[in-house]
Design a protein around this nucleic acid. Structure first.
Ligand SMILES: NC(=O)c1ccc[n+]([C@@H]2O[C@H](COP(=O)([O-])OP(=O)(O)OC[C@H]3O[C@@H](n4cnc5c(N)ncnc54)[C@H](O)[C@@H]3O)[C@@H](O)[C@H]2O)c1
Ligand SMILES: NC(=O)c1ccc[n+]([C@@H]2O[C@H](COP(=O)([O-])OP(=O)(O)OC[C@H]3O[C@@H](n4cnc5c(N)ncnc54)[C@H](O)[C@@H]3O)[C@@H](O)[C@H]2O)c1
Lengths: 249, 249
DNA sequence: CGGACTTTGTGCATGCGTTCACAAATGGCT
DNA sequence: AGCCATTTGTGAACGCATGCACAAAGTCCG
C-alpha cells in the first residue's frame, strides 16, 4: 500500500466538493433559507431535529445532507447557525455574485424584474431584453430594457452568469442559443419547451403546466382510491351499493 | 392457505391505476404537450425514438413511462398520436376540469391571472383573492378580485380544486389553511415557506430562489473541476503554471 | 472527575428509478 | 405464405436516494 500515492483511487482533499447528490443540493438551499431566518431572529444554535422540522424533512436526511459538506456540528449540542450558513453558502457558490439577465419582459418577465427577493440573495438582475420596440429603453424594476440583438454583447460585458427565459415558447430556443453565445453558463427556462444546449451549460426549467397536471393526477388517483375503498367496504358489508355508473374495476 | 383470498398480498386488477412513479407522472405531462403539438401539425403516428428525442429523454425511459399507463403502441410501427393523447389525459385526470384560484394578486399573481396557457389546458382560473382594498373588485385577466375573507365560501361554491399561493411568505400558511378549509385538494405554492397541511392535501412548490441556487452550485462545481483539471494537467506537463490568481484556461 | 444524557455522523439495508438488452409482436416485401 | 426489418414492452441489473439504528463524541451536572 503506497503511502503518498494520489491516483483516482484516493479522493483528495480538493475533491471534497463533489459527489453531493442533486436532490441534496436543492434541500441545502432550503436549509439555508430557514437558517438565515433563524439567524435574523437571533437564534444561534439549532439541533438537527429542530432544523429538519422547520425545513419539512426527516432529521436523518438532514444530517446526511449536512454531512456531504463536512462535519460542522457538535455532538450532544447541535449546529451553530452562523457556521452552517457560511458553509452552505460556500458550497452553493454564493460567495460570488451571480448576475442575472431576464429575456422576454411580458407578464412574467415584469414580475421577475420587479421581484426584490433575488438581489437580496446574491442574484442581482442586471439586464433585461425584449424584441418589442415599445419596451426598449423603458425601465422595469429600475433597469432599462435592451433589444434582444444586443444580448450577446451585453451578457459578455456584464458577466451575466444566469439567463432567465420568459419569452413565448417559439422564441425560446433562439434566445437560448444567443445567451449561450454570450457566455451564459446557466439558464432558467419558463417557456414550455425542451431546450437544446451544449453540455457545458446547465438548464433548469420551471413548468407550471406540468405542476398543475401532476396535481391533477393526484386528485384523480385520490378519487379512484376513494372508489376502491368504497367498493371494498360495500363488499365487506355484504355487497350492496354499487358506485353508480362508474365501474372502476 | 385459502385459495381465493384477496388480502394485501394479491395486487388486484383494480389496483392497476396506482403505482406510477411520481417522476414518470411529471414526464407524462411533458409527453402530452409534445404529442398535442404534433397532433396539431397533423402528425398521426410517432415512434418512441422520435417522441423521446422531442421530449428530451432517452427512449427506454419513454417506453417504460408509457407502459405504466398500458400498451397502446404497435410493434414495428410506433404509437398513434391521438390514442396516446387520450390515454395520458385520462391518466392525469384531465378529462375533468380543474378550477384554479389564485391568492395574492401582486406581481406574480397578475402574471398568473393574465396567462392564457392555463385555461387552454383545462385549468380555468375562476377566482382571485387579495387583502389589498385597492384591488378588491378590480378585474384582472377578466376576473374580479375577491377579498380574502370570502375565500372559504367562494372556493366551496365554485368547486375550486387547485389553489395557487402568490402572497408574501408570512401570509402563506394562513392562506393555505383557509384554502384547505374551503375544500381545496391541491396547492401550488410560490411563497418560499414550508407549508403544513393535512395529508389529504397535495402540495407542490415552485421555489425560484432554490432554482437559482442550484444553478449557482453547478457553476461553482464546474469552476472547481476546471481547477482540478488544470492542476492535473500542470502536473502531467511537469508542473509549470500554478493555480495562483485564477487560471481559467 | 466520572457517569449519564444528548445529539451527531454514518454504515447498512431497503426501495425507487433508470438503463440495458432482448424476446415478442407486427407490418411489409418477395 | 414465409421471412426480414422494425419497434414495442418488460425482466433484470444497476445505481442513487432514503430511512433506520447505533456507535462515537461531546456536554453537563453532581
Ligand atoms: N405568465 C405566466 O404566469 C406564465 C405561466 C407559465 C408559463 N409561462 C410561460 O412564460 C413565458 C412568458 O409568459 P408571459 O405570460 O410573460 O408572456 P407574454 O406574452 O406576456 O410576454 C412575452 C414577452 O416576450 C417578448 N418576446 C417575444 N419574442 C421574443 C424574442 N425573440 N426575444 C425576446 N423577447 C421576445 C414579447 O415581446 C413579450 O414581451 C411563456 O413561454 C409562457 O408559456 C408564463
Ligand atoms: N415576483 C416574482 O417574480 C417572484 C419570484 C419568486 C417568488 N416569488 C414569491 O411569490 C410571492 C408573491 O410575490 P410578488 O412579487 O407577487 O409579491 P407582491 O408583494 O407583489 O404581491 C403580494 C400580494 O399578496 C397580497 N397579500 C398580502 N397578504 C395577503 C393575504 N394575507 N391574503 C391575500 N393576499 C395577500 C398583497 O396585497 C399583494 O397584492 C412571494 O412569496 C414571493 O416570495 C415571487
Amino acid at each position: 500500500m503506497p503511502a503518498i500515492e494520489d491516483g483516482p483511487s484516493v479522493p483528495a482533499a480538493r475533491e471534497r466538493a463533489r459527489a453531493i447528490p442533486e436532490a441534496a443540493v436543492a434541500r441545502l438551499a432550503v436549509y439555508l433559507r430557514v437558517l438565515s431566518a433563524m439567524s435574523e431572529q437571533g437564534v444561534s444554535s439549532v439541533s438537527s431535529e429542530e432544523l429538519s422540522a422547520a425545513a419539512g424533512v426527516n432529521s436523518a436526511k438532514l444530517r446526511k445532507d449536512l454531512s456531504y459538506i463536512g462535519s460542522y456540528g457538535t455532538r450532544g449540542v447541535g449546529y451553530e447557525v452562523g457556521v452552517l450558513v457560511d458553509q452552505i453558502e460556500r458550497t452553493l457558490g454564493l460567495t460570488r455574485k451571480h448576475s442575472v439577465a431576464v429575456v422576454g419582459i411580458g407578464n412574467l418577465g415584469h414580475a421577475l424584474a420587479n421581484y426584490g427577493g433575488f438581489p437580496g440573495r446574491g442574484f442581482p438582475v442586471t439586464a433585461l431584453f425584449d424584441v418589442d420596440p415599445d419596451l426598449i429603453g423603458i425601465p422595469v424594476g429600475g433597469i432599462p430594457v435592451h433589444h434582444i440583438d444586443d444580448i450577446t454583447a451585453v451578457c459578455a460585458e456584464r458577466e451575466i452568469s444566469i439567463g432567465v427565459i420568459a419569452t413565448p415558447p417559439p422564441a425560446a430556443q433562439a434566445v437560448c442559443d444567443r445567451l449561450v453565445q454570450g457566455g451564459v453558463e446557466c439558464i432558467l427556462n419558463f417557456a414550455p419547451v425542451v431546450l437544446q444546449v451544449p453540455d457545458t451549460v446547465e438548464v433548469r426549467k420551471v413548468d407550471l403546466a406540468v405542476e398543475l397536471q401532476v396535481l391533477s393526477f393526484h386528485v384523480a388517483r385520490r378519487a379512484d382510491q376513494a372508489q376502491v375503498d368504497a367498493m371494498a367496504d360495500a363488499r365487506e358489508d355484504g355487497d350492496r351499493t354499487g358506485i353508480d355508473g362508474m365501474v372502476v374495476r
